[in-house]
């Protein structure tokens, strides 16, 4: 509203009395909405605060979940664990993007020659999308090393990461595939008519549009992966969740879990805002005239 107002005053040539009155009305409406938003937020916050702090068990809960001293003491260990989560996230995230794109591409291949490959990709997606992540973690983390095959790592971080990659590649491949299939056939026709072969059509025309369209969904999966990186703790890797557990066992206080949880939330906020910005930009590009 302020921007529009500023623009108007710059371009102000001759504004009629009627328009001046209308602008004033619109400004008063937007002021009113701001006031209403402020009021309702305040009421909501106050009610929430008193509901929690007036509950009978609040003193106990405060002592065992929100103890500042314990929080401060556990912070270094939890942060160190989080650094492991971050590294796992970045490596897994990259691997997932590349592999998922490959799986999606295979699933959209046409032609009888590719049937076995297509079948394999479909079976992979069905299996790993359906399997609960925690079971997959146990199978990969404890089952795979138990085979005692040469070359299988027995580092829990690597194994946990592998399980995450297996599961998330299946999800993200489906997101990519949905994006690829949402590109109108006329786009493929246009690209082929210019002499581009199917691979170039996919790479230069279809994929850029598909990825742009599914970016919000991809970022959503990225935030989910951020949290699920904490699940590698079930294998024994000392990540943020595991570090919190160790601190909790030492102090008989649950505050370290809250600390770890808050850190994960903080980690997710930039991704969420980035996703919002991306959607807004896409909307602007489609909107207008």
């Amino acid at each position: 509203m302020a921007v529009v107002g500023g623009q108007r005053s710059r371009a102000e040539v001759t504004v009629s009395e009627l328009q001046r009155e209308r602008l004033a009305y619109k400004r008063s409406r937007s002021r009113r909405s701001t006031v209403v938003a402020l009021l309702s937020t305040t009421v909501f916050a106050v009610v929430g605060y008193f509901t929690v702090t007036r509950s009978p068990g609040w003193p106990r809960v405060r002592d065992s979940f929100f103890d500042p001293a314990v929080a401060w003491r556990s912070l270094p260990a939890v942060l160190e664990g989080l650094w492991l989560n971050l590294r796992v996230l970045l490596v897994c995230g990259t691997l997932i993007l590349v592999l998922a794109l490959a799986v999606a591409a295979v699933r959209t291949l046409r032609g009888p020659v590719w049937f076995p490959l297509r079948l394999l990709a479909t079976a992979y997606v069905d299996l790993f999308r359906g399997l609960p992540l925690i079971i997959l973690l146990y199978l990969v983390g404890f089952g795979l090393p138990a085979l005692r095959l040469a070359g299988v790592p027995n580092d829990y971080v690597v194994l946990g990461g592998a399980a995450l990659v297996l599961a998330y590649t299946a999800y993200v491949a489906e997101v990519f595939r949905a994006g690829i299939e949402s590109v109108h056939p006329s786009q493929v026709a246009a690209a082929r008519s210019l002499g581009l072969n199917p691979q170039k059509t996919m790479r230069l025309v279809v994929l850029p549009q598909a990825v742009r369209r599914v970016l919000p969904a991809l970022l959503n999966d990225f935030v989910a992966l951020q949290k699920d990186c904490g699940l590698i703790s079930v294998l024994g890797a000392v990540d943020a969740v595991r570090a919190a557990q160790i601190e909790q066992a030492r102090s008989y206080n649950f505050t370290p879990y809250v600390v770890a949880g808050l850190l994960f939330v903080l980690l997710a906020v930039p991704s969420a805002r980035f996703a919002d910005a991306v959607s807004r930009r896409a909307e602007r590009r489609q909107g207008g005239r």
Binding site: R8, V15, S16, L18, Q19, R22, Y25, K26, R29
Partner: peptide, 16 residues
Amino acid sequence: LDDGRILLDGVDVSDP
């Protein structure tokens, strides 16, 4: 609109 009015059957419909 940045100024002016749209009247439908004499009723100003561009009024916010």
